[in-house]
C-alpha cells in the first residue's frame, strides 16, 4: 500500500441520510480500524472472562465448595491420567464424567462445551487432518489417487487422530473446570502446596492485579485512537503509533513500579513475605481427592485394556 493512495481521498459522501462507501473505500476503512478493533475486542474479552470467572467461582456448586488445594491435586492426577491414556473409550468416558461434574458445579452447559471445543481442540483437529490421509502401512478405507500420490485413511490413523483430539479436549476441559470454579487468589495460595516459592506467588498475584490496570490503560489508548481517527493513515504511521503506545506503556510501568515500591515501603514492606491461609480440610475434600485418584488409576488401567 503506498502512501499517496491513502492520504489523498476523503471517502465519505452523504446520500439520503446515511453513509455509502464504495467497496474499495470500505476495505480501506476496515484496514484503518481493523487492528484497533481487534485489540479492543481482545482486551474486552480478557476483562469479560475475568468477571465471568469470578462470578462462577462464587456460585454454590460442587467443585466451588472444595478446598482449592484438593482441587489442584485432583486436576493434576486426572490430567496426567488423561495424557497417559491411549484409549479412545477411556477418554470418552472421562469426558462424560467431566460433563457431569460441570453440571454439578452449575456451569452453563452450552458454554462449557463451546468454550472447550471451539478453541484449541478444533485447532488440533485441523493440525492432525493431514496425518490421517498421509499414512503408510495398513489397508485403507478408501483411496484417492492424485497422480502418483495415494491418499486415504487407515483405521489406525483415524483412531490415532481421534485419540489425539479427544485427549487435547479432555485436558482443556479439565483446565477450564479448574479455572472457572476457583478464585484466582485461592488458586495461587494452593500453589504453595506444590512448594512454589513465596516470591513467585506474590509476583503472580501482583501481576494479575496490574494486568487489569494495563488492560484498562490500553483500552483507553485504543478508544482514543479510534474516536480521533479521521481520514486515512498509512501502514507505517499506524505501526509508529502502536510502537509509541507500547513504549509509553513501558515508561509508565517503570514509573508505576517506583510508586508501588514507595507505597509498599510506606506500609511496612521489608522484603519478607507472609501469607495467611485458614484452609481446613473437610471429609468431603479428602473423599473427592480419593475419588480423583481412583479415577486416574482406573483410567490408566482401563486405557491398557480397552481399545
Amino acid at each position: 500500500m503506498s502512501a499517496e493512495a491513502d492520504g489523498s481521498r476523503i471517502p465519505v459522501e452523504r446520500e439520503a441520510g446515511h453513509l455509502t462507501l464504495s467497496r474499495q473505500e470500505r476495505r480501506q476503512l476496515r484496514r484503518q480500524l481493523g487492528w484497533v478493533e481487534q485489540t479492543l475486542a481482545g482486551v474486552t474479552e480478557a476483562i469479560e472472562r475475568a468477571v465471568f470467572t469470578e462470578e462462577h467461582a462464587r456460585s454454590p456448586g460442587w467443585l466451588q465448595g472444595l478446598d482449592p488445594r484438593i482441587k489442584l491435586g485432583m486436576f493434576i492426577v486426572t490430567v496426567l491420567a488423561a495424557s497417559l491414556s491411549h484409549s479412545l473409550l477411556a477418554l470418552l468416558l472421562l469426558y462424560g464424567l467431566l460433563l457431569l461434574v460441570a453440571r454439578a458445579s452449575l456451569l452453563p452447559f452450552d458454554f462449557f462445551v463451546r468454550r472447550v471445543w471451539l478453541g484449541i481442540p478444533f485447532f488440533a483437529g485441523v493440525v492432525i487432518l493431514p496425518s490421517i490421509f498421509f499414512t503408510s502401512g495398513g489397508p485403507r478405507l478408501f483411496e484417492w489417487d492424485l497422480g502418483p500420490l495415494h491418499l486415504g485413511p487407515t483405521p489406525a490413523s483415524l483412531l490415532g487422530a481421534a485419540v489425539f483430539v479427544m485427549r487435547v479436549g479432555d485436558a482443556v476441559s479439565l483446565a477450564v473446570l479448574l479455572i472457572l470454579t476457583t478464585r484466582w487468589a485461592d488458586l495461587l495460595k494452593s500453589l504453595q502446596v506444590l512448594r512454589v516459592p513465596q516470591i513467585f506467588i506474590l509476583l503472580l498475584s501482583m501481576t494479575y492485579r496490574y494486568i487489569f490496570l494495563f488492560l484498562h490503560t490500553v483500552n483507553g489508548f485504543f478508544e482514543a485512537r479510534k474516536s480521533r481517527t479521521v481520514g486515512f493513515t498509512s501502514g507505517g504511521e499506524q505501526r509508529t503509533w502502536i510502537v509509541t503506545a507500547l513504549v509509553t506503556l513501558m515508561n509508565r510501568s517503570f514509573q508505576m513500579s517506583n510508586e508501588v515500591y514507595a507505597a509498599m515501603c510506606a506500609r511496612g514492606f521489608t522484603g519478607t513475605i507472609r501469607t495467611y491461609s485458614d484452609y481446613r480440610l473437610q471429609s468431603g475434600d479428602v473423599l473427592a481427592l480419593l475419588g480423583a485418584l481412583l479415577l486416574s488409576v482406573g483410567l490408566f488401567f482401563l486405557g491398557r485394556v480397552l481399545l
Binding site: 506474590l202 509476583l203 501481576t207 492485579r209 496490574y210 517503570f254 513500579s257 508501588v260
Partner: peptide, 9 residues
C-alpha cells in the same frame, strides 16, 4: 517484586 510484577503485566 513490584518491578517484576509490573513488567510481567
Amino acid at each position: 517484586v513490584p518491578l517484576m510484577a509490573i513488567f510481567s503485566a
